[in-house]
Amino acid sequence: MSDSGEIWTAIRLTLGLAFISTIVLLSIATPIAWWLARSSRSWKEIVAAVVAMPLVLPPTVLGFYLLIFLGPDGPGGAFAGLWGARSVAFTFEALIFGSVVYSLPFVVQPLRNAFVAVGSRAMEAAATLRASPRDAFWSVAVPLARPGFLTGAIFGFAHTVGEFGVVLMIGGSIPGETKVLSIAIYDYVETLRWTEAHILSAGMVVFAFIVVLAMLLIEKRLGRVLR
């Protein structure tokens, strides 16, 4: 009973983390992707490279720097001092922060591609039809980029669910606070609790299949809409 309770705690925590991270990701990635798609500044690719770095960096390296950033001697520590804590590392909030940084490129990239596909002509047409830039963004760019938003959201969500290295570095393994699915599976294997490890791993396999299938279906739809 306590075993299944433990499993459910990990699942709930993981889903909560992924859900909140996805919302934060979309609200941060949208303006970045829009700027990257529309700006003509030559240095925008440098920004794009910084955003995309987590694609290449080992998660432990990213986690290490995030740990320093969030820890007692970093800005995170100073921030935590506001309410008398020593550090924001090893909290649920730290996980959200880490997940957002780590998954950002997976959301920015499809959004940027979708915004590029919208093109400047549609925005110009909207402007000649009396739509302000803000109006045109919401009434033309966002609906036309809808497949990009779907892809980005699914990527961001799935990537957060599956992340391990960053969480291990900045979250540790506190049940109900930072012990997410991937950490739980690792712990079960370490302590030779194969049944629980099997249940969670099989669940992840099914989840991964659903995600990939959804992606393919959206891709197909995207192709249809834009042709």
């Binding site: 002509r121 549609a122 110009e124 047409a125 909207a126 000649t128 033309v140 609906p143 036309l144 809808r146 809409v225 834009l226």
Partner: peptide, 11 residues
Amino acid sequence: YVFQEASLFAH
């Protein structure tokens, strides 16, 4: 403004 291509909103 009428552009060379119709530039209709596909959505």
